[in-house]
Amino acid sequence: MMEQEKDKNIQEELQAMGSSLGSLKQGTPFQVPTDYFQSLPDDLMRRIRAEASLWPTEAPQAAATSRAFLLLNWLQHWKYQLGILGVLAAATIYYFLLPGAVATAATDELAQLEAAEIKQYVSNNIDEFSMELLLEAAIVESEDVHSFDVLEGLDENTLDQLMDDLLEDIDLNDLNEIF
């Protein structure tokens, strides 16, 4: 307390030092633009919201607890809104207006896979494939496919019935063995 009381009187301290600077002490010669301190908090909060959106992982815990807040701030940033719109537009063109490009790229990649690799993949992920798809693949690959000629005389309904019967009879383990 004694120290604080002494601290309060800067002029006395300077006089004690033998300095005449104490007599100079008056108001600040510096000025700020009108309403600077009224607008600074708003400017800063805007910057902080932008900071929160740019570095969400670095945001303080209290701010990071509200991901919705960060996302909202992020979405309020016009640059990111434009970016999102741009990405969505490009994706739309790519998938809907140029479907052939996507299909061709995927087909080309699949064509480069070895049969053994495909079998291995299907075997490892058999639960992800529908029974119909597996059966179709088995029939296409089977050597018995050549005997399809014998089915030529059957109409579409009869063939469908035969396929359904096969699906009912076939066991998942059998399909595993096929692959």
């Binding site: 815990q61 209290a62 701010a63 607890t65 509200s66």
Partner: peptide
């Protein structure tokens, strides 16, 4: 500032 929630944090800051 240490409360959970963006509103309290903003108010505090």
């Amino acid at each position: 500032l240490l409360q959970k929630g963006a509103t309290a944090f903003e108010r505090g800051f």
